[in-house]
Design a protein around this nucleic acid. Structure first.
Lengths: 143, 143
DNA sequence: TCTACACTTCGCCATATGACGAACTGGAGG
DNA sequence: CCTCCAGTTCGTCATATGGCGAAGTGTAGA
């Protein structure tokens, strides 16, 4: 019990991970989308998501060749709902979170394949650069 | 904002500190009382309380020669109330927390001066050993 | 079966954290 | 002024954490 609470609070207590949780509020995202918003190495994002998953704050689900991460319903950790609720209510006006949200909008406007090709620093551009081509899959992985 | 949330979650996310927060639920305590319950060095307890204070989860107040720590009202950190509420609801059945509560009861039954003389390992005894003598101050620091 | 690629795991590094004992601080009381 | 002592601060240590790139895994598709 103490262990579960500790895991959940520690998971949410890292600034990168609370940013991720905020990104996931509206919709599930795959690793490369998170990566494109946060400008971090894929291994780093993957690790953070694994920590969030281990803490029961996030669920993952394979979807084609992507894996979609989404906020958990609280089945695996009794404290998840409380903490996620707290995070949801928090940081609404935080400048960094607002920036993330803006970048997320741009990312959601691009085809997934293109997002994944961006690399950790978002090299291609802030807005979509390759323009016309649409991925064979829908823009984002949805059930 | 992100910083405050991070501070509060990290402060509460350490198992020793969440134990301390649980100890403070009913009443304010001084360092040596916490020390007596947790069996930790005074410097360690002091540091943890300083972290909790910096995170806005705890207030301190000089009271005679002791300093009384108590849960904060949330004036210094907008996320304090939420997190403290979460902690309060949590861990009610946790065995370690129950143990702490039991030890706390014993400690509250002893005169403060005796508690402070116990040392980090609670050398004197589990129950009060010196018996009769009562401290000049009340058993615990109260307003 | 082979390639492509989204993601994970591993090894490494720099920094942060939690524990302790020793030394310091400052209020209470002689 | 001096002593006592609860509490803090400092220095040190072992371990945990967060970041990266390189290598490994497993699925989709040619």
């Amino acid at each position: 019990m103490l262990r579960q609470l500790e895991a959940a609070l520690k998971a949410a207590g890292d600034p990168t991970r609370s940013r991720i949780l905020k990104l996931l509020e509206d919709d599930g995202l795959c690793v490369c989308q998170v990566q494109a918003v946060l400008h971090l190495a894929p291994s780093t994002v993957s690790k953070h998501l694994a920590i969030l998953k281990a803490a029961g704050l996030v669920d993952d689900r394979r979807e084609g060749r992507w894996i979609r991460y989404a906020l958990a319903g609280g089945e695996h950790n009794p404290y998840a709902r409380g903490i996620l609720g707290l995070i949801r209510r928090a940081l609404k006006r935080d400048p960094k979170i607002r920036d993330d949200r803006r970048r997320l909008k741009e990312v959601l406007g691009m085809p997934l394949a293109e997002v994944c090709a961006l690399g950790p620093a978002g090299k291609a551009a802030t807005t979509a650069s390759k323009g016309p081509e649409r991925a064979s899959r829908p823009g984002r992985p949805r059930g």
